[in-house]
């Protein structure tokens, strides 16, 4: 529990790249919001970016598969692709 407390202090900076309103994107947005609300209440920043709006980001960020979630902090940086329906996998990646 001690370690969990330590981590709890960290703010999770998350960035989710989606492609417009594709089914996977919509699912991913709702899933990640769910996960965050349930497990990271009040200690996360979620930024959602629509690649369709800013296609040049795709090249810069080496984006291929979507939806893509990047956990910028706490370190290490991790990437997740998919509609975030595998909650256990996401949490494992978050280190929770």
């Amino acid at each position: 529990m001690q370690s969990l407390d330590l981590e709890n202090k960290d703010i999770y900076k998350l960035r989710l790249y989606v492609a417009g309103a594709s089914p996977n994107s919509v699912k991913a947005i709702s899933n990640i919001k769910n996960i965050c609300e349930t497990h990271l209440k009040d200690r996360y920043e979620l930024e959602i970016i629509d690649i369709h709006q800013q296609p040049s980001i795709a090249q810069k960020e080496q984006i291929i598969a979507l939806p893509l979630l990047i956990k910028k902090s706490p370190l290490p940086v991790r990437q997740f692709v998919g509609d975030m329906s595998d909650t256990a996998q996401v949490l494992r990646g978050f280190g929770i």
Binding site: S25, I64, L68, Q79, D83, S85
Partner: peptide, 13 residues
């Protein structure tokens, strides 16, 4: 990490 369904929209875009 793969967490469910995804597609290659990034590549397309």
């Amino acid at each position: 990490e793969e967490t469910g369904e995804y597609d290659l929209d990034g590549l397309f875009i």
